[in-house]
Computed example of a mutant assay.
Amino acid sequence: MTSRDDLAASISDELVRRFSTSTVLYHHAIAERLGLGPSDHKCLDLLVQRGPMTGSQLATITGLTTGAITGVVGRLVSAGFVRREPDPADRRKQRLVPEPEQLPAVREFFAERKGQAESLLDGFDRDELAAIATFLQRAIDFSETGAAALRAEILHAGGRAALRSRTTEEASEEPE
């Protein structure tokens, strides 16, 4: 029988990474099926989850440049998934608002797969499901906190290019 420590190491060292990669690839395929790019799809998902926000706010959350967000927003608007409207807090800014008329197509896509996803939980009792829910919430918190910390590190270093340059310099200084 596998020890708790060995099982925990297997989960944290291998399974989480494999799960993350398979999730990214699955969401790439979902985006393609919806006629979107992967960043477009996840930005739309953030707007649906968190509600209307400005492009700058979306850029901060995602770590995408404002130029990249401009492209994402343009594609989402052209596809009819998002509309721009004046920000009530600052009329000079525009908020990005998911288009309710287009969201049923996205929800329908996921509803068609809901039974498959729910079947993953078959055979687990209430306590096991609670443990899964706890793990997933911890993983979400870890990912969100980690992403924010990495972005802060990038900003503190003077941006992506400065951080890449510094990382390259540090790697060349390491003894062989």
Results as ranks from 00 to 15, higher is better:
E169V: 06
R50W: 10
L25E: 06
L7F: 13
R83A: 01
E99C: 02
L150K: 07
S143P: 02
R91P: 09
V77L: 07
G80W: 00
S165F: 04
R107F: 12
V97T: 12
L121Q: 07
A171W: 03
R84P: 01
V106P: 01
H41A: 02
L36F: 06
T54Y: 05
E153L: 13
E169G: 02
S12R: 15
L46I: 15
I132P: 00
L96F: 02
T168G: 01
R113A: 07
E174C: 02
R151S: 04
A161N: 12
D141W: 15
L36E: 03
A59W: 02
K114E: 07
A31F: 06
L155V: 10
L103E: 06
E108C: 07
L46A: 15
D87T: 11
L7Q: 08
E170T: 11
G35W: 06
I69S: 00
Q94V: 00
R160G: 06
A9H: 10
L25R: 09
E173R: 13
S10K: 09
R126P: 01
D40K: 03
A79I: 07
S165P: 00
E112G: 04
E108V: 11
I154V: 13
A171D: 01
F81V: 00
L129S: 00
A8D: 12
R95G: 00
L25A: 04
L155I: 09
I11Y: 03
H41E: 03
P104V: 07
K114T: 09
G159T: 15
G35F: 08
E169W: 04
P98I: 03
R50G: 04
L46F: 15
E176V: 15
R17N: 04
A68H: 07
A133M: 12
A148Q: 13
D45M: 08
R84I: 03
F142S: 09
T2P: 04
R160D: 06
D5I: 10
R91I: 12
H28L: 05
G71S: 14
A147M: 10
I140Q: 02
I154W: 06
L36R: 02
M1E: 06
V106S: 07
V73Q: 14
A68F: 04
G158Y: 15
T145S: 07
G63K: 12
P100N: 06
L47E: 05
D5H: 08
H156E: 10
D90Y: 11
I69G: 00
E112R: 07
E170D: 11
T70I: 09
L34I: 06
A139I: 13
Q94P: 01
I11E: 02
I132Q: 01
A133K: 09
L163P: 00
T2E: 09
S172G: 01
A9T: 13
L121Y: 12
V82M: 02
E128I: 00
A131H: 13
A162V: 03
I132M: 02
V73M: 14
L96V: 02
P88L: 14
T21Q: 03
P52E: 13
A31P: 02
